[in-house]
Write a protein that binds this DNA or RNA. Structure first.
Lengths: 122, 122
DNA sequence: GGGTTATATAACCGTTTGATTATTTGACCA
DNA sequence: TGGTCAAATAATCAAACGGTTATATAACCC
């Protein structure tokens, strides 16, 4: 088994940071939570995370970028960060291997999915 | 949002290590992969991970234990480690929030589940 | 062009992490 | 009881991490 190497994703872009360790930090998880709501400028994020300095936020954002978890659009002096959720698919795939072990809940999941589908259709 | 505190799980046991950081280490993930096949003694794990020393393995196992990801049975001088997959449910729940963003694949997942169900019935 | 604004990078520092070697603990067995 | 085997802990160390302050970069505006 090989882990932690540099990986070229399907989009052709090279990710240099492991998704698992990117997500291991609680501050970075909170940043992803924030970006899950909508995209935000670096400045927005700095003012939300006012307990840490601007450079600290910037470094966290770099790690999230390098892991492919967020993308940036340049808009004048601002950098607009957006969630790139597909990068979490890797993590999800890893967990999926273990799901069979608590698999009784799979049926429940399936039901949940069907229910959502119905809700969407209405 | 509060992360990283000491948490008392449903089983009443106190976990002192964050699941995310426990799983962030590639060696520990490989150990979980090994334990997903079947339970193993500490000695088995030491000989599998022969590139690192016995104490290093022991310390990794302690972290997995403290995170509730594995449990131990004492068997004479041996310690038998087993996977405790439910501890990954926390991680799975976190990712689930993001799944809606790559939700086109949800239909595919549902189909996959149904297919598996059929396969089981046969 | 000069000043301001937004963000990233550099240099540095204390703490944590993952490894090592040495030692301890404790169950088995002759 | 003394010796061996299995595993955990102690002490130590270099590298990585997350934070800081200071500085650089670069686009906007007057």
């Amino acid at each position: 088994m090989i882990y932690n190497q540099t990986v070229i994703s399907l989009s052709g872009y090279i990710k240099s940071v492991d998704t698992f360790s990117a997500v291991a930090d609680p501050t970075r998880r909170a940043m992803l939570d924030m970006l899950a709501l909508r995209e935000h400028s670096a400045g927005d994020i700095v003012s939300t995370f006012s307990q840490i300095s601007q450079p600290a936020v910037s470094k966290h954002l770099r790690i999230l970028r390098d892991a492919g978890l967020v993308s940036v659009q340049i808009h004048a002096q601002q950098r607009i960060y957006s969630l790139q959720p597909k990068a979490l698919a890797e993590l999800d795939a890893w967990i999926a291997k273990y799901k069979v072990f608590w698999s009784d809940s799979l049926d429940a999941l399936e039901q949940h999915l069907s229910k959502n589908k119905e809700a969407k259709k209405e």
